[in-house]
């Protein structure tokens, strides 16, 4: 790989006595979808929150070959590192449109704007003035994605976008991923739904208890290998 768009070296995160991440390395190439999979408590969300600047890490994080380890979350958003958080985390007293516009507060200029988000998710046109707590889980997830898109991310961090959603809604959301890659965006997604994640990603990394247990391309590993790395049943394999 040439210079990665986003790279993390030796990321270590501690929550008090507990070490949530043990020296994780990760490289994201321009224009790729990269999946981080793992069971509950594997450290996936901690990894994403650390990349977004919400946890201070040990190790280094570089975006477009610039060290951003010490940058605050809003400075990272300004540089194009934008997260769709687990559980959507929408702002309940704001309307659909206001939630999306909030993404422009610190975001970059670029091809994504409110118009384009309304084109991507046409249902929002008629419901743009509704408060977001009136929406279904899938609709809320799409608002959260729209909010991140108008910040014109270089790297879009998607945290458990399938969580709590019906399979048909999850498929619908995953179908939009190729559109999100248009322009210069790359996607780093974190998922418990391994099958869905590996279908969407060109490369993946499996975490277990804060350590990488498997990494590579989805086609390079059997389902058994992935399962073993996911649950820690058997010996670990490294790509």
């Amino acid at each position: 790989m040439s210079v990665p768009l986003l790279s993390a070296k030796g990321l270590t995160v501690r929550h008090g006595q507990l070490t949530a991440l043990h020296g994780i390395d990760l490289d994201l190439a321009p224009g790729e979808v990269f999946a981080v999979v793992g069971a509950n408590g594997a450290g996936k969300s901690t990894l994403l929150r650390t990349l977004a600047g919400l946890h201070p890490p040990g190790g280094r994080i570089r975006l477009e070959d610039v060290d951003i380890t010490g940058l605050s979350p809003h400075e990272r958003v300004r540089r194009g590192l934008v997260m769709v958080p687990e559980g959507r985390r929408l702002f309940r007293s704001l309307s659909v449109a206001e939630n999306i516009l909030l993404g422009t507060v610190c975001g970059r200029r670029g091809g994504w704007d409110l118009d384009r988000v309304l084109e991507l998710f046409p249902w929002m046109r008629d419901r743009r003035r509704e408060r977001v707590d009136h929406l279904s889980g899938g609709e809320q997830q799409q608002v959260a994605i729209g909010r991140a898109l108008v910040a014109n991310p270089r790297v879009l961090l998607l945290d458990e976008i399938s969580l709590g959603l019906a399979p048909v809604v999850v498929r619908q959301i995953y179908r939009t991923l190729p559109t999100l890659l248009e322009g210069d965006t790359s996607i780093l997604l974190v998922e418990q739904d391994v099958r869905q994640a590996l279908r969407a990603a060109s490369r993946f990394q499996c975490l277990l208890e804060g350590r990488t247990t498997l990494a590579g391309r989805p086609g390079d590993h059997t389902a058994e290998e992935v399962e073993a790395a996911y649950f820690g049943f058997a010996g670990t394999a490294t790509a």
């Binding site: 919400l54 605050s72 979350p73 990272r76 934008v82 929408l90």
Partner: peptide, 13 residues
């Protein structure tokens, strides 16, 4: 006011 952690995540200080 709604969610300061989420606000931080979208770039608000």
């Amino acid at each position: 006011r709604d969610d300061d952690h989420a606000a931080e995540g979208v770039g608000v200080r």
